[in-house]
């Protein structure tokens, strides 16, 4: 069927108990072959959504389809055809690298040789450690093995729930490079992450917070939708700087961004005006420049609006 979305989520809601609204009226579509990011902090509902799509949980309301199959009725078909890497890498610690791969290949009814091409450049890095127990691998290695296991049956859609959490920056970087290559092989990928800086590596992202979607778009468009003038400011005293900037009359918001403070303004003003304001408050080492808007700026703006 042409133009059928790989993942189609319509008005999904899910509650846990009476108190926790994990997902509220969530809708989005992922096109075949797309690398789609689900970006949001812990507790935003990312894992619940992943589990609903992988047929592990039932939604209270709404409908979802994967490859056109209904997640409730056609769960067996979906389970046969998708790959899933849960938040905690789901490996048997007391089995070797090879044994893990063999096990997951067989339970998905696949042969390693058949689909080895798909995982070659990931798994080849693990080959020297073939006989090592999974529990003895570093975080980055575990992550690669878990990804190999999720891919070995050549799934058409791949669900990755926070694959980069708890992994160091180097491994994170390598992991995203692997995802880019997989995308070129035509696999649809839905990946969730709490790291805003990873949003830029996806084709499209959904920003999610407290079970609601704040925005769905390409990273560039999300950044572009930030419509306030934004300055990056630093002085010698960060703590006083934040507090003082919040007293400035044209301030919309002031948040620390690393060693700078991003100051969003209600109306365009000359940086000199801000400089004078800070100098009057006895700041030293004042540096003011135009800031590059990041996904985080947009995310915070959307959070405060909703």
């Amino acid at each position: 069927m042409p133009n059928q979305p790989a993942i189609d989520v319509q008005n999904i809601s899910k509650r846990f108990g009476k108190q926790v609204q994990a997902l509220e009226d969530v809708s989005f579509q992922v096109q075949p072959g797309e690398l789609f990011g689900l970006i949001g902090p812990d507790g935003a509902g990312k894992t619940a959504l992943m589990r609903i799509l992988t047929t592990l949980l039932l939604a209270d309301e709404g409908q979802a389809r994967v490859n056109g199959w209904d997640v409730r009725k056609d769960y067996k078909l979906i389970r046969r055809n998708v790959g899933y890497m849960p938040g905690r890498f789901s490996l048997y610690q007391d089995l070797s690298v090879e044994e893990n791969l063999q096990f997951f290949a067989t339970i998905f009814g696949a042969a390693i040789e058949e689909n080895y091409g798909l995982i070659r450049d990931i798994y080849s890095q693990l080959e020297p450690f073939r006989t090592r127990k999974a529990g003895k691998l570093s975080g980055g290695m575990k992550q690669k093995l878990a990804l190999s296991c999720a891919l070995i049956h050549k799934p058409s859609v791949l669900f990755l729930d926070e694959p980069t959490t708890g992994v160091d920056a180097v491994s994170r970087h390598e992991f995203w490079e692997m995802l880019q290559r997989l995308r070129q092989k035509g696999i649809t990928i839905l990946v969730s992450t709490p790291y805003m800086d990873e949003a830029g590596l996806c084709e499209r992202v959904a920003l999610i917070q407290k079970g609601r979607i704040l925005s769905i778009d390409t990273p560039a468009n999300i950044v572009g939708s930030f419509d306030k003038p934004l300055l990056a400011i630093r002085t010698d005293n960060m703590y006083r700087l934040i507090n003082d900037l919040r007293q400035f009359e044209s301030t919309h918001s002031a948040y620390p961004f690393g060693d700078y403070v991003h100051l969003a303004l209600d109306r365009p003003i000359w940086p000199e005006a801000v400089h004078a304001f800070l100098a009057a408050r006895e700041h030293t080492g004042i540096e003011i420049k135009a800031a590059t808007v990041t996904i985080e700026d947009s995310f915070m703006e959307l959070m405060t609006r909703s």
Partner: peptide
Amino acid sequence: ELGTMEVLLVSPL
């Protein structure tokens, strides 16, 4: 507890 059950469930087992 290990979390491996999630993958077993998603598999055709």
